[in-house]
């Protein structure tokens, strides 16, 4: 195997994995950019008798040393996207780095889901979308590894 044909291992049919990973990462990137801007611009909404209030995005957990968590998410997705694109064009190391990156993101995501479910007691849709995209990326990576090992 030369270093040109890579990610796809022996079968040529699985190049779709890094490509779709890049697309999914792009979705995650758009989502986190949206969340970051929403966090930065949203005037906290008063708690209305009728419609409740945004607990998750205004909770102290929504920031880490003053930086919105969503901004870290945006950077993480951008890195994952870059690795996936490099891998799509045959860079094998990038695909390994992608796996490490996505595994780290999945751990952080699991923690955030835990916070939403058990500590804050509220969920936010776009945070859950981000969780979904992260786990999708992880699954894609795992599939590629399983295929490779066959």
């Amino acid at each position: 195997m030369s270093d040109g044909d890579i990610q796809t291992g022996r079968s040529e049919g699985i190049a779709w994995i890094p490509v779709s990973a890049a697309l999914v990462a792009l979705l995650g990137l758009a989502d986190s950019v949206y969340l970051t801007i929403h966090h930065l611009t949203a005037v906290p909404v008063p708690c209305s008798i009728v419609s409740g209030c945004e607990t998750v995005l205004t909770s102290p957990y929504a920031e880490f040393s003053g930086v919105p968590l969503a901004a870290f998410g945006a950077v993480a997705y951008f890195i994952a996207f870059s690795f996936a694109i490099l891998a799509s064009f045959g860079n094998r190391i990038a695909w390994t780095l992608f796996g490490i990156q996505v595994a780290l993101m999945a751990v952080v995501t699991a923690w955030l889901i835990y916070l939403q479910a058990f500590v804050i007691g509220a969920f936010c849709q776009f945070c859950l979308l981000s969780a979904l995209t992260t786990f999708t990326l992880l699954i894609l990576f795992v599939i590629s590894k399983l295929r490779q090992s066959k």
Partner: peptide, 10 residues
């Protein structure tokens, strides 16, 4: 205000 309301705390 409501002590459990996030925007009140804000």
């Amino acid at each position: 205000a409501d002590f459990q309301c996030g925007s009140c705390a804000a």
